[in-house]
């Protein structure tokens, strides 16, 4: 009996429900785009405010943005290497900012208060489409980075250090986007579900530490995603001797 009611309660969380937009023949998850546009809009507003009046002696927001830039540069430089990190810094930084803003936006803003006809608003990264899109972009990027930097010699990487590695390296090309996308998706969705269930069962106090844990996980996931993307690109452009 209890189990049954729990299930219906779960159903009240509307897991796996989407707000469908139909454009011609294609169907979209509207809630993902809505939240991503709001969050990215906020990010862009924040960044344009911070970079509006840039001075040599940074003040206010510019300080924060410069710190962020420095952080992203360090991340890209340590993973990709001194030679080509400049080309990839905007991509790595965008991945980091996008995932971070999506995760934190999903965790901090009480989207549930906004009622949709179907599905509910939440972190864009809690949708498998978003995470797969990001992961595939990373895959394309490291292929492109490897090929553009080393030409056909990029494929030496597959038989390095011995040809025995070939099947594993080929397998890696599939497991890399898979693990990237599912790690992010699983973490963020699980966090949303745990908080949702706890809020539903015990609406007072108890969810708060879990929410903080969620914020922590969100930040860590953004860092992990950006670091791994940079690492894969770095691995592709690395010169073997």
């Amino acid at each position: 009996m209890f189990f049954n009611s729990l299930l219906t309660n779960f159903a009240a969380l509307e897991v796996g429900q989407h707000l469908y937009w139909q454009i011609g023949n294609i169907r979209l998850h509207g809630q993902v785009f809505l939240t991503s546009w709001i969050l990215l809009g906020a990010l862009l507003v924040f960044i344009s405010l911070g970079t509006k009046k840039m001075e040599n002696d940074p003040k206010g927001l510019q300080n924060l943005l410069e710190f962020l830039w420095d952080y992203i540069r360090d991340l890209a430089r340590t993973q990709i290497g001194e030679k080509v990190y400049r080309d990839w810094m905007p991509f790595i930084g965008t991945l980091f900012l996008f995932v971070f803003v999506s995760n934190w936006g999903g965790a901090l803003i009480p989207w549930r208060l906004i009622k949709l006809p179907s599905g509910e608003l939440g972190a864009p990264t809690a949708d498998i489409n978003t995470t797969i899109a990001l992961a595939l972009l990373v895959s394309l990027s490291y292929f492109y980075a490897g090929l553009s930097n080393k030409g056909w010699r990029y494929f030496e990487y597959y038989v390095h250090p011995t040809p025995i590695m070939l099947p594993f390296k080929i397998l890696e090309d599939f497991t890399k986007p898979l693990s990237l996308s599912f790690r992010l998706f699983g973490n963020i969705l699980a966090d949303e579900l745990v908080v949702g269930v706890l809020v539903f069962l015990v609406p007072l106090i108890l969810p708060i530490p879990v929410m903080f844990l969620g914020l922590f996980t969100s930040a860590i996931q953004a860092l992990i995603f950006a670091t791994l993307a940079a690492y894969y690109i770095g691995e592709a452009v690395e010169e073997h001797h």
């Binding site: 989407h18 294609i26 979209l28 998850h29 991945l95 489409n129 978003t130 899109a133 990001l134 595939l136």
Partner: peptide
């Protein structure tokens, strides 16, 4: 549920 959200999100990124 994987649909056109994926490529559009990629383009957006």
């Amino acid at each position: 549920d994987i649909n056109a959200t994926l490529p559009l999100m990629a383009i957006q990124v």
